[in-house]
Amino acid sequence: MKWPTIIVAFFAVSLMSSAVLAQETWRPQQRAAQAQPQAATERSEAEVIVLHALNDGKGIDPKIGKMPQLKQPPFSAYSSYRLLHRGRVNLVKGKDATLVLPNKGKVVLQLKSVSKTKKGKRFVLATRIDKANGSKFFRGEFKAKPRNIFFVAGERHGKGILVVGIRVTTQ
C-alpha cells in the first residue's frame, strides 16, 4: 500500500471519528433544549369565561370586566352580555381538561405543545365543545400567546347564545 493511500484512509477515519464525537458533544444540549418547554407546560393553566349573549338591552355585565371586544362586531349583534361562569383548568400536555357549561355541555381543552418563537411562547391548544346531548358543536386548534383571550361563540342557550372565552396563562 502506498503512502498517499494510507494518508487518505487515515484522513477519512479521523473525519468519521470527529463527526461521531461532535454528535455526542451536542446531544446533551439537545436534551436540555427539549426539556425546557416541558418544564414550562407543567405550570400552565387556562382561564375560561362563559358569557350569555342576549338581546334584552341590559348591556354588559360589570362582572365581566374590561372587554372592549364585546362592543364590536360580531359581538355587537347582541345588546347584553351576562357572566355565567369564570373558572380555571390546569393544562397538562396531552391530557384533557374539562369544564362543564351551564347548559350541561362541555368544554374540553388539551395542551398539544408549547413552542418558543422570536415573539415569545406559543401554546397550541386543542379545543372541543360538546353539547349537553354529547353531540359535537365545535373542534379546533389554536396557537395562542399567553394572557390573550380567544372566543368560541354561537351555541344556543335560552333566548341567546353562549360565548366561551379562553385565555392561557402561566404561573
Partner: peptide, 11 residues
C-alpha cells in the same frame, strides 16, 4: 382578538 362564530342552526 380571535373570535370563532358558529351558526347553531340545528338548535
Amino acid at each position: 382578538t380571535t373570535v370563532v362564530w358558529v351558526s347553531d342552526l340545528e338548535e
